[in-house]
Write a protein that binds this DNA or RNA. Sequence first.
DNA 1: TATCACATTAGATATAATCTAAATCCTTCA
DNA 2: TGAAGGATTTAGATTATATCTAATGTGATA
Lengths: 151, 151
Amino acid sequence: MVAESIRRSLEAGGLRCTPQRYAVMAFLTEHARHPTAAEIFEGVNLVDPRSSRATTYNNLRDLVKAGLVREVAVEGRAARFDAKIMRHHHFICDRCGNVEDMEWYDVPRPASGSLGKRVLRECELIFRGFCTKCAPRRASRLDAARRVDAG
Amino acid sequence: MVAESIRRSLEAGGLRCTPQRYAVMAFLTEHARHPTAAEIFEGVNLVDPRSSRATTYNNLRDLVKAGLVREVAVEGRAARFDAKIMRHHHFICDRCGNVEDMEWYDVPRPASGSLGKRVLRECELIFRGFCTKCAPRRASRLDAARRVDAG
DNA sequence: TATCACATTAGATATAATCTAAATCCTTCA
DNA sequence: TGAAGGATTTAGATTATATCTAATGTGATA
């Protein structure tokens, strides 16, 4: 049962299961399309208008801190959020800014020498290009130049 | 000669070498520490107060579009900019938000099936954790939990 | 039921980035 | 040379995104 599993993961993360917090988590679980904070706020209040903007932001921050949600910064656009259900990489569309999940696979870690005193916590792989919707009508400026020199 | 090489790369990117544009490019070349737009604006005007904020943003956008500069979005903070001198990956500090360059190495591409109709243009690897300065005094909240499950 | 820490709220505020419309600067070419 | 037109720059207004503030509410515990 979904409701119960959300409650459990909130509590495992040291967070009370409040209606507003639950709603954010449920919305992210149901909408895997990486919504922005504004979209989450709207979506949640569409169902049950009981949450303020500040609360939505507060809860998102707490959820990220607790490791239950991933935040994806996108150049020049609002951040996207993502329930951490399964490990995956991200594809970001250069044209519309949408974020999509990509199949997960192991990424080689940096040579230990190059880390120095840094503490490594995460490695993530980000693919960029044009999503399925944008590929056909992709901006001509961006078009020509540098298709996959991608590494 | 640096001046000449900047001029050349601007023109190769289809951009006139104006004093303001040159100044942005020169600043980025000399300051490899991934400054924000605001820092670039200040730094450039410290030397020669002739550039407006709008121009700095305009030029940064043009330089990114021309592929001469890389923009790095950082969660909850201003974007950072980076002259594309050599290929490299990025390390983002979870505590101070600073962006550092990491040695470049090949990243395995996604399985062709998982791309579908998407057009892949770039693959980038982002490391997260605590930078050299922050590692000793890293925030206790962030501390405990998930050190490198990192992939 | 009193208490206290955690949560929520509306609205103000801060920060980051873009837009607007006018002015200026180049390049071209007659 | 100098007129035309596009590219560039500018100050300031505006938008977009996110956080802060101070008051209020809520629930677990004793």
